[in-house]
Amino acid sequence: MRTKPKADCNGRKFVKVFTILEKHGHKPSRLVPILQAVQEEYRYLPKEVLTYVATALDISPARVYGVATFYSHFAIEPKGKHIVRLCDGTACHVKDSIPILDAIRKRLKLEGKKTTTDDMLFTVETVACLGACGLAPVVVVNDRVHGQVTPEAGVKLVEEIIAREQS
């Protein structure tokens, strides 16, 4: 089910890393925008690429790792093909967002601290606030916002994707 990268896909991405580094003049002060751009390419920050970035910017890999783990926007583990973000800001929380999360995680068999399914199809995360409190509780699936979601509706959203992937 996991889409196999095209033969030269990784190579192209890596060449893109060169361009990103050059665009930012190999400046250590540009680390955050560089990491953002690298994540755009890879959808996460592979350790080896981070080592390469550290080498190219002449800063210690531990520092790059520190920055990459500080911001929750950066992912250092690969994310699933579909990203489900559940808002757990104050408004959504009081509107019972957690039962939705529990239902989706149960449906996807995500246990403990795991956020990505074994088949790499889904990553389920919570975010602090999406600024759509009027629609609470809110679930965002692949950048599409769904308002007033119930646990059942949340599970349905996921199941629709599974059905599409299997067809």
Binding site: K6, A7, D8, C9, N10, G11, K47, V49, T51, P61
Partner: peptide
């Protein structure tokens, strides 16, 4: 450091 290679093909 001990690190893995970056695979650039499939």
């Amino acid at each position: 450091m001990i690190g893995e290679d970056i695979a650039l093909g499939d």
